[in-house]
Design a protein around this nucleic acid. Structure first.
Length: 604
RNA sequence: CGGGAUGUAGCGCAGCUUGGUAGCGCAUCUGCUUUGGGAGCAGAGGGCCGCAGGUUCGAAUCCUGUCAUCCCGACCA
């Protein structure tokens, strides 16, 4: 490819609209252009990268035994009504009508379509298991598209769906896919962690996400991971064992007492006033469930509540912290002084289903309660008195047995907490970009849509399903997010748009041009993807662009061209070396053969 | 959808407070010089100031509406 004809319009400055590194660099290096919010043109270099990622995915999926198909993007509404997601999916689903006023959708995912295929075409256990996948544009009318390719409204995704006769067989396939995913991301040069997660709108029981760990801002989730074992989880799922802390306050409070604590509405001011560690405080947070029901969360003073965990604990669609007015209305005190006080515990169903404990001055005024496990070991501690500017100290729960029914895990894990799996090493945290996920769907869709097959003993049974996604465009963007420096992108060799850029420093110098043209042609003949910067530009411009565009290997024909020497430099490294044309060929081939991500990792 | 901000040349921005008919840098085009890290000089082209109303003798500037884009939250590959 000749740079003089390549459509890669580079920009000297970052576009104002781009906030994250991958978005900035892909825009600046002329890989993408925005058409509308969350909708992008992939220019020639980007499309090459995309196809590289696609091909790696395709090869590994094929190797894992999946079969590639292509399902329609435009889908009739009736299958969505059948599955129930016409109502459930909400505004993210792009709906439209055709000329006959028939409702249609643009596919955000393809469980409905693939289940209809299985329903119509798979009739016998003899045809199972089967795993079908496609690589295709997906449409999700995101509330807030952002971060360039990391969250678009249109994006390219590989989605696979497997069908099974038993849970055990689904299990087997699940781990076949997990292994395929590990191989895929490794081949893309990306280090990933397989992370437990919530299954969200897609449904099902078990799910894992594959996260590219990044230190940059763009990672959308906090990922806690064990420094010793393989444990990793989203912040909204991460469990942890708390390291030792002071949980018995008998040294501070010889006896139970009510103390006046003026202006001690925060943990910080209270610890200062009482001269105790924050772990000796029972913190009470008043939440509102689905804009209707108040409930209390008790958690140790030095910990934070994790809202998704809280939400799951009470089976809510939405939770939020109560405002000052609500705190006053429901507890009769002000923020910072809510607690157990003189209240009593009441057992039995509350207004919130599943929560069986409530606290209050009387049963009909009692508020449902969720208690974090961190509260359990507390003895002789401090807690709000439900009276402004008063706390109770040296407090012990009157009936610890009763509380047990309300224990949940609702705390936000902290860096330094102990790994829940190996129970030895401390947890660490990083930002992560979710590039893939795998779900066990079970029979959710096959039951909803009546998709059955004949079993070996002649019964009809619903398919047991799994589904497995990889964001192709997001993976490419994540690679930029992971591999770049102040000068631009540093593509991992396997997904680089071209492997080599040949730079004749001065196009009017015939010796340089001849040498450059020669190595360009020989690299090409050897099947290496190479671009020659034949533009009549100054050396600085070409070098800047080569760095910005991120070609892994740069071959320069410059001063030493007269001696037949070319300068070879890896984008990820600082130093360069001079070589004869023959050696350049060998060097490049060797790089391609011996590619491994550790080399890049070491230099970024 | 709530909170915040921004729309002026292809890109990045100034001008707006205090209305008087648009400017800077980069990019583009032409010519000469230059040629190993975003060159210099000379010249040129390109904008109904997001759009629609209103106020005014006069609006990029003030007012109203609208559209778009971005950032922060809840959702997601």
């Amino acid at each position: 490819m000749r740079m003089s004809t390549l459509l890669a319009p580079t920009l000297r400055e970052n576009p104002a609209e781009a906030e994250v590194v991958s978005h900035q660099l892909l825009m600046r290096a002329g890989y993408i252009r925005r058409l509308a919010s969350g909708i992008y043109n992939y220019l020639p270099l980007m499309w090459r990268v995309m196809k590289k990622v696609e091909n790696i995915v395709r090869e590994e999926m094929d190797k894992a035994g999946a079969q590639e198909i292509l399902m329609p993007i435009l889908q009739p509404a009736d299958i969505w009504q059948e599955s129930g997601r016409w109502e459930v999916y909400g505004k993210e689903l792009i709906r439209l009508k055709d000329r006959h006023e028939r409702d249609c959708v643009l596919g955000p995912t393809h469980e409905e379509v693939v289940t209809s295929i299985a329903k119509n075409e798979i009739h016998s256990y003899r045809q199972l298991p089967v795993n079908l996948y496609q690589i295709q544009n997906k449409y999700r009318d995101e509330i807030r598209p952002r971060f360039g390719l990391l969250r678009g409204r249109e994006f390219i995704m590989k989605d696979a769906y497997s069908f099974h006769t038993t849970e055990e067989d689904l299990d087997r396939e699940y781990y076949v896919m997990a292994d395929a995913y590990k191989a895929i991301f490794k081949r893309c040069g990306l280090e990933t962690r397989m992370v437990r997660s919530d299954s969200g709108a897609i449904g099902g029981d078990v799910s894992h996400e594959f996260m590219v760990l990044t230190q940059t801002h763009s990672g959308e989730c906090d990922v806690y991971y064990c420094s010793a074992c393989e444990y990793a989880a989203n912040s909204n799922r991460a469990e942890s064992i708390l390291p030792d802390a002071v949980v018995d306050g008998s040294a501070f409070f010889p006896a139970e007492a009510n103390v006046e604590t003026p202006n001690c509405a925060s943990i910080e001011t209270l610890t200062e006033f009482l001269k105790i560690p924050p772990s000796l405080i029972g913190k009470a947070l008043l939440y509102i469930k689905d804009e209707a029901e108040p409930f209390l969360v008790f958690i140790r003073g030095d910990l934070e509540a994790e809202e998704i965990k809280v939400l799951n604990a009470v089976g809510a669609n939405e939770v939020r912290l109560a405002n000052a007015e609500e705190v006053a209305r429901y507890t009769g005190t002000e923020k910072g002084y809510v607690g157990a006080g003189e209240w009593q515990a009441f057992q039995g169903e509350t207004r919130i289903p599943g929560v069986k404990l409530s606290f209050g001055p009387s049963q009909d005024q009692a508020i449902p309660v969720v208690i974090d496990h961190s509260i359990a070991p507390l003895r002789n501690f401090a807690i709000g008195y439900n009276r402004s500017h008063w706390h109770k100290v040296g407090f012990n729960w009157p009936n610890p047995e009763l509380l047990k029914t309300a224990y949940r895990d609702v705390k936000l894990a902290r860096v330094g907490d102990i790994c829940p799996e190996c129970e030895k090493a401390p947890l660490e945290m990083t930002r992560g970009i979710e590039v893939g996920n795998i779900f066990k769907l079970g029979q959710k869709y096959s039951k909803a849509m009546g998709a059955t097959y004949s079993t070996e003993d002649g019964r009809e049974d619903h398919f047991i399903m799994g589904c497995y996604g990889i964001g192709i465009s997001r993976t490419a963007a994540a690679a930029v997010e992971r591999y770049h420096d102040e000068n631009g992108i540093i593509w991992p060799l396997p997904i680089a748009p071209y492997h080599v850029v040949v730079v004749p420093v001065n196009t009017s110098d015939e010796t340089q041009m001849t040498l450059a043209q020669d190595i360009y042609e020989r690299l090409q003949a050897a099947g290496i993807e190479v671009v020659i910067d034949d533009r009549d530009e100054r050396a600085g411009v070409k070098f800047k662009d080569a760095d910005l565009l991120g070609f892994p290997i740069r071959v320069t024909a410059g001063k030493k061209a007269a001696e037949g020497l070319l300068e070879v430099k890896l984008r990820a490294e600082k130093s360069a070396q001079d070589m004869q044309t023959e050696d350049v060929l060998h060097f490049v081939q060797q790089q391609l053969a011996s590619w491994n991500s550790e080399v890049v990792l070491a230099h970024v």
